[in-house]
Amino acid sequence: MRLFGKYLLILFKSQMQYRTSFWLLSFGQFFIPFSVFAGLYFLFERFGQIQGWTFFEVALVFGVIHMAFAIAECLARGFDMFSALIVNGDFDRLLVRPRSTVLQVLGSKFEFTRFGRLLQSLVVLVWAISRVETDWTLMKAVTLLFMIVSGVMIFTGIFILIATMCFWTVQGLEVGNIFTDGGREMAQYPLNIYHKWVSRFFTYVIPFGLVNYVPLQYILGRTEGSGIPYMLAPLAGCLFIVPCLMLWSFGVRRYRSTGS
């Protein structure tokens, strides 16, 4: 973790060498999800509810998902840009260093300009928390934290999976955006508004349902019986990153240099 912190510090200092550019990019990132949130607001302004979900309940999910995506995109940007390391042959240098390739790829790129997206998501989340109809307790606050952490792990796992495919395809596959950008757009709504096969896929395969829909039942007091399984569901979602790391290790063992 000390080495990871040094990676963060070095890259932050390098990006702050162009402060005007940094703040302009951060400002732009603030308004990217704002337009999506505006669409969400006008949708509920027109229809009132969506299958029993109110605006602030969905806004709570929106804030959690977009905050998790912003953190994952900042910290796991190295995996998102991993194909460049393969194409240029730079991954070979990582293999001869006495540190984990996962740590080195994580430390190769950070997008601190995602702070703008993170700030916007935080504003929406705080607003939703203050307006949603529920009695907040310490356990519910902890559940909300679990939701964010689980979302970060799932998005990071998806980035790792997409990067792993580069060991065989060399170039990155745009189809991966279906599960990053597409997953983010779908998971900003409770999954029960979609067809059953969609909600099942995003619960049992890519477990976004364990980030938003299941723990949200506990926060809103809609559970039957004990609420502990609903509260701990996001921690099960964190396990998604384990098979992603296993597949990454499998790909590293079968990597053949591009010869660049």
Rank of each mutant, 00 (worst) to 15 (best):
6 K>A: 10
9 L>I: 10
9 L>T: 04
12 F>Y: 02
12 F>N: 00
15 Q>H: 07
15 Q>F: 06
18 Y>M: 00
20 T>P: 00
29 Q>C: 00
31 F>E: 02
31 F>N: 02
32 I>P: 03
35 S>W: 06
36 V>P: 00
39 G>W: 02
43 L>D: 05
44 F>H: 01
44 F>I: 04
47 F>V: 13
48 G>S: 06
49 Q>K: 06
53 W>I: 13
54 T>Y: 00
56 F>S: 03
58 V>C: 07
59 A>L: 05
59 A>Q: 12
63 G>S: 09
67 M>T: 03
67 M>K: 07
69 F>Y: 15
77 R>S: 12
80 D>I: 15
82 F>I: 14
83 S>K: 10
83 S>T: 07
83 S>G: 00
84 A>N: 11
87 V>D: 06
96 V>P: 01
96 V>Y: 08
97 R>T: 15
102 V>T: 13
109 K>L: 13
113 T>I: 14
116 G>V: 05
119 L>E: 06
121 S>K: 07
124 V>Q: 03
127 W>T: 14
133 E>M: 09
135 D>Q: 15
136 W>S: 00
138 L>D: 15
138 L>C: 09
139 M>Y: 04
140 K>I: 09
140 K>W: 11
149 V>L: 11
149 V>S: 04
154 I>D: 10
154 I>R: 08
155 F>D: 07
157 G>D: 04
161 L>P: 02
167 F>V: 02
168 W>L: 07
172 G>P: 06
177 N>L: 13
181 D>H: 10
182 G>A: 09
188 Q>P: 01
198 V>P: 02
198 V>F: 15
199 S>E: 14
201 F>Q: 11
203 T>W: 13
204 Y>T: 06
206 I>W: 02
208 F>H: 08
210 L>T: 06
211 V>S: 01
212 N>L: 02
213 Y>C: 01
213 Y>V: 12
214 V>N: 01
215 P>Y: 08
215 P>T: 03
219 I>G: 00
221 G>F: 05
221 G>E: 12
221 G>Q: 13
227 G>W: 11
227 G>F: 12
229 P>I: 10
234 P>S: 11
237 G>C: 08
246 M>E: 13
246 M>W: 14
247 L>A: 02
248 W>I: 04
251 G>A: 06
253 R>G: 01
253 R>T: 01
255 Y>C: 07
257 S>A: 10
260 S>C: 14
260 S>Y: 15
